[in-house]
Design a protein around this nucleic acid. Structure first.
Length: 104
DNA sequence: GCCGTGACGATTC
DNA sequence: CGAATCGCCACGG
């Protein structure tokens, strides 16, 4: 363990995201000291082992857009999970980051 | 050590 | 306003 890779750091931060809140890839990357590694953060999420139980559904893009639904096992799954936690959505189908954006 | 790839981000057209 | 493009960084082969 102790793999100092960015991946593990991302997983650690993502696991700290409180319920009912969401964070962005760029925010995590920036918290890790790599503001331009937003893509790498998303990549880490995709490679995140399910056994970590990471609330990846709470990690969205800076525009409030959610991740590919296919990855969550079905369309609207991520949105349902967030709604269940009390997260509000815009008419555009995006998360209301102004109220739920959480930064490590 | 180089190339390709990718749950992004911001800018430009 | 919507779509397209470039740029960013890190990992795997």
């Amino acid at each position: 363990m102790a793999t100092d890779s960015l991946f593990e750091r991302v997983w650690k931060v993502a696991a700290r995201v409180p319920r009912g809140r969401v964070t962005t890839y760029g925010a995590i990357a920036r918290a890790l000291g790599s503001p331009g590694a937003a893509r790498t953060v998303g990549w880490a999420m995709r490679a995140a082992p399910a056994r970590l139980k990471l609330p990846c559904h709470r990690v969205i893009t800076a525009t409030g857009e959610l991740s590919p639904e296919d990855v969550f096992g079905g369309p609207g799954v991520q949105r349902l999970l967030l709604e269940d936690e009390g997260v509000a959505f815009n008419a555009q189908g995006g998360v209301d980051m102004k109220r739920h954006l959480w930064i490590p």
